[in-house]
């Protein structure tokens, strides 16, 4: 877009001007017109040509920069066709037309995809709700028949359904976000009870303490996130004396919830990737691993402003910490509520 390229583009015009100057020179020479006058005229002609080209160049450059600027400014670039003025020039119009059509086609496509995605999400959501009734019927049946295997399998189905529901929602969760004051124990306690059979049958010692602490967050989401971590902890316990410790502490004015197990642990080379979607570890039992649990935990926690940290020593322990946001802002909310 430099002046040099612009001159190159107009090279024929420039050559023509020079040829014209030469013709004038010879014609005036033959006509015996005053020599100085001829020279002045030719200089004027070349001068005029140069300035004409220069001003045209400045005008075009200004427009070009405007378009680039408004494009850069746009968050969603495909709206650019709405931002630029119509260009009727012979070289500008085809581009203008093509851009207009391309953007329109793209917008149509995007709204199609968005609609599909919404439909899909709604379907998943209604599926998850519908399937809960038969699951409830089955789990009651299993309880009545005292069928431990069935109970255990139903728990797994339940977890997968929860996962898919939160996955479908994880992009649009803003809408059902409800922050309130909750005692940590009121979230942990039902989760432990839910897993009572698995914990007892697996001879897992629960060491639960210091949970009479309040946090401000969304109860359902936090419960889902903790249950993902707890399920992992249960799944990968391998020692003779299996222990899960759940407690909270205050660090730098922040409440930290810790879930510590003495299970399989995570290799240090795997640690940075545990939150990646679909990551199931390089040598874990792949059984039942979807690689979605911790990914969802990370994703939801970011929206709730909770920091999730994982620390582990391979074959010794895994320690997951939920760091809740500082309470300053929350105090305000609670005052309003």
């Amino acid at each position: 877009m430099s002046f040099k390229t612009f001159l190159e583009e107009n090279i024929i015009f420039i050559i023509f001007q020079f040829v014209l100057a030469v013709i004038i020179f010879f014609a005036f020479f033959l006509l015996e017109i005053f020599f100085v006058f001829t020279i002045l005229l030719i200089l004027f002609l070349l001068f005029f040509t140069f300035f004409y080209l220069y001003f045209v160049y400045l005008g075009k450059k200004k427009r070009a920069l405007q378009i680039i600027y408004s494009c850069n400014k746009l968050e969603e670039k495909y709206y650019i066709s709405e931002m630029i003025r119509k260009d009727d020039t012979i070289e500008g119009y085809p581009y203008y037309y093509a851009l207009k059509e391309a953007c329109k086609a793209m917008n149509d496509k995007i709204s199609d995809i968005e609609k599909n995605e919404r439909d899909y999400e709604e379907y998943i959501e209604s599926f998850a709700h519908e399937i809960k009734t038969p699951i409830a019927a089955l789990s009651l049946y299993a309880e009545n028949k005292k069928d431990k295997t069935l109970k255990y399998e139903i728990r797994k189905i339940e977890e997968y359904v929860e996962q898919i529901l939160y996955y479908a929602r994880s992009d649009t969760t803003e809408k059902d976000y409800f922050v309130k004051k909750i005692k940590l124990n009121d979230i942990i306690h039902p989760l432990i009870l839910k897993n009572k059979d698995i914990l007892l049958n697996g001879h897992i010692n629960m060491n639960v303490h210091d949970l009479d602490v309040y946090v401000y967050t969304d109860e359902k989401w936090l419960s889902f996130m903790i249950s993902q971590v707890l399920n992992n902890a249960i799944k990968y316990l391998d020692k003779d004396k299996k222990t899960i410790e759940i407690y909270s502490k205050i660090k730098d004015n922040q409440v930290v919830l810790v879930i510590l197990d003495n299970g399989w642990g995570i290799r240090s080379s795997d640690l940075p990737r545990v939150f990646d979607k679909g990551f199931t570890g390089s040598n874990r039992k792949k059984e039942y691993a979807t690689g979605m649990g911790l990914y969802l935990v990370k994703k939801l926690s970011e929206k709730l402003d909770i920091t999730v940290l994982i620390d582990s020593k391979y074959q010794e322990y895994t320690k997951v910490s939920f760091v809740f946001p500082k309470s300053k802002m929350h105090d305000e909310i609670s005052r309003r509520v």
Binding site: K132, F178, L193, K194, K220
Partner: peptide, 26 residues
């Protein structure tokens, strides 16, 4: 599983609220 339902139910006078699939023990 929306919180809003819960809040609404409680304000209509429910004594407690439980979501399917409920754990029988709970």
């Amino acid at each position: 599983i929306g919180e809003i339902d819960e809040v609404l139910s409680m304000s209509y006078g429910a004594d407690d609220y439980i979501t399917k699939p409920y754990n029988p023990t709970i």
